[in-house]
Design a protein around this nucleic acid. Sequence first.
DNA 1: GCCAGTGCTATAACACTGTTATTGATTCGA
DNA 2: TCGAATCAATAACAGTGTTATAGCACTGGC
Lengths: 226, 226
Amino acid sequence: MPEPATQPNEPDREDLRTRLLAAAEKLVRKHGPDGLSLRELARACGSSTMAIYTLFGGKPGLMEALYVLGFARLHAYALSAEAREAPLRWLVRQMLAYRRFALDHTGLYRLMFGGEKRFTPTGRNSRFASLAAPVEDAYPAFAALVDAVGACMIHHHASAPDPAQVQDLAFLVWGQMHGLVGLEIAGYADPADALGRYQSAVRFICTHCGAAPADVDAELGAAALT
Amino acid sequence: MPEPATQPNEPDREDLRTRLLAAAEKLVRKHGPDGLSLRELARACGSSTMAIYTLFGGKPGLMEALYVLGFARLHAYALSAEAREAPLRWLVRQMLAYRRFALDHTGLYRLMFGGEKRFTPTGRNSRFASLAAPVEDAYPAFAALVDAVGACMIHHHASAPDPAQVQDLAFLVWGQMHGLVGLEIAGYADPADALGRYQSAVRFICTHCGAAPADVDAELGAAALT
DNA sequence: GCCAGTGCTATAACACTGTTATTGATTCGA
DNA sequence: TCGAATCAATAACAGTGTTATAGCACTGGC
């Protein structure tokens, strides 16, 4: 009996999309987001460029798929740093996890935050996309940051803070993390000082939330050992 | 007497380089750093692409020229915000000037800090480029920031701070500014809240330097009127 | 079992990019 | 005035994203 040749339902078939995505991630890691070539990608997967068009609709669609993949990766980093029972540890580890994600995936990071508004996720309330939707609605990674900041503030301050105030502070924290990491990736930070400066930023922010500097240093030291 | 036709020493001749640079800046503003086309640039200046090769040595050379032009522009913004007699006003205005530069020149800003190490200025100590040279040696704009932070700390703290401490804090300030501005350019900030959040970051940093929140708000209010 | 119909992919072509070799004109120096 | 040199324009090459065409394998109905 002749084997069904290359059936369209062979394992590679529905895997082609994920294989292309994985190869694209590898190429973005190597050449940067703007150095991705459809022909090179197709060559790496043993297919033609048309497969990318039928599966992603073109290069922008492929980039958008990488974009959501990057946010899923970032969310995984945020989840791995979760410690709801210890708010200070939670915030410290999440800030460190953000930097580790950026340094581990500089290609994806530059694609997501590279300074050009490329894509906006179509959330459940995409009908109101023209309005200003809170960021945490669209990006679960930012929601985790808001939660960690809020928990840290509640834990160290007596009164429960205003939710809007928590969002604003979380955005400042995000800005601090993104700025330091971005400068580091762009080559403006001395590699020998980059980690120390990031740690001092963590200290800066956590003490602003009310934590004791010694406790923050303890968490930083414990996190540095892992 | 026949006019000398198109003499190579006509005013356009040595101006061609600056004309190309100006046109390139305009194209980068419109299409972004990665959307710059040598052919379109040459077409805009009525010349051929070869002129770019003889004047800049190729596209990387052109990008590097735009890079140093961007830092000159940023330095001009920093100088326009100088107020050495009032350290707090100096720091506040310089932080606001940084954001204004980034929003006024998003193309150049993305070229300079877009998350990819493209160029490093060949300073006077370029022989030690392999070593970690302090950033303020290469970029006068960052030196101005270090000066403003140091003056603000000296003015509000009794004791003169350690220079290394001033550099570290200035780098954190730079990171905060770059992060917020980068997120704003990338489209992650609600346009209605972006300025307010940046102002709260200014408040955050200046109070850390020892300034009174009311004084910071006064400076922010005065700067908002100009 | 056969045959239209559908869905997907490979090939080839188009317009575009950066880069380079070649050619021609123009200027400078002896 | 003539040789040498400099510089820009033309054309070509390899590469890019995209699209039109054509071919293949599979599905549905008869």
